[in-house]
């Protein structure tokens, strides 16, 4: 199920101009590490190892050095943000309507247990407490949206859609 997508990390032309503009502010190329980390985070939402190697090349330093700085600051996001966070209601009403089998089906289809994420970082599956939609159980929340009166067929259709974009 898990598909690996590989985004090539690079600085856009505008970023390259910006880098040249600020380069002179720093005594050594290493000084650029922090602004470049911010640029990558702003552009991609997170900082991958590939991005660290890109930055290292730009700053004439080792990827290890960039890694050290990126891990020092907790403000840097070093894991790919989850794209689809599926929170399946586990509380009584949904439970009576069969949420257990929905959760089991999702676990089976995604190849992970509740509480885990797929390796490619696209899906996280969580069993949660009542989401106040007891009249339409079983239900789950995907990011900010509700999906209600679920059946395994409906779930399959959703996964099909999410997995194809």
């Amino acid at each position: 199920m898990a598909t690996t997508e590989k985004t090539e990390v690079k600085f856009s032309e505008a970023r390259k101009q910006e880098i040249e503009r600020i380069r002179g502010r720093y005594e050594t190329p290493r000084g650029l590490i922090m602004p470049l980390l911010w640029m990558i985070q702003d552009d991609y939402g997170w900082i991958s190892y590939d991005a660290m190697e890109l930055i290292a090349g730009e700053c004439e330093t080792s990827p290890a050095w960039v890694y050290s700085i990126a891990t020092f600051y907790t403000m840097f996001e070093l894991e790919k943000p989850i794209r689809y966070h599926l929170q399946v209601c586990n509380t009584l009403s949904c439970g009576l309507c069969g949420s257990e089998s929905i959760l089991a089906h999702l676990e089976d289809r995604l190849g992970i247990q509740a509480g885990e994420s797929t390796e490619d970082g696209r899906f996280r599956l969580t069993a949660v407490e009542c989401l106040a939609s007891c009249g339409t159980g079983p239900m789950m929340q995907m990011n900010d949206e509700y999906y209600e009166s679920l059946t395994t067929e409906k779930v399959d259709a959703m996964l099909e859609e999410w997995n194809c974009d």
Binding site: Y49, M52, T61, S62, P63, A64, W65, Y67, S68, T71, F72, T74
Partner: peptide
């Protein structure tokens, strides 16, 4: 420059770049 410290405080550890 293979070795660095990653993370901070109690989580700080000596490490290489992942995969190296």
């Amino acid at each position: 420059e293979e070795l660095v410290i990653k993370n901070r405080s109690n989580h700080a550890e000596i490490t290489t770049f992942p995969g190296k």
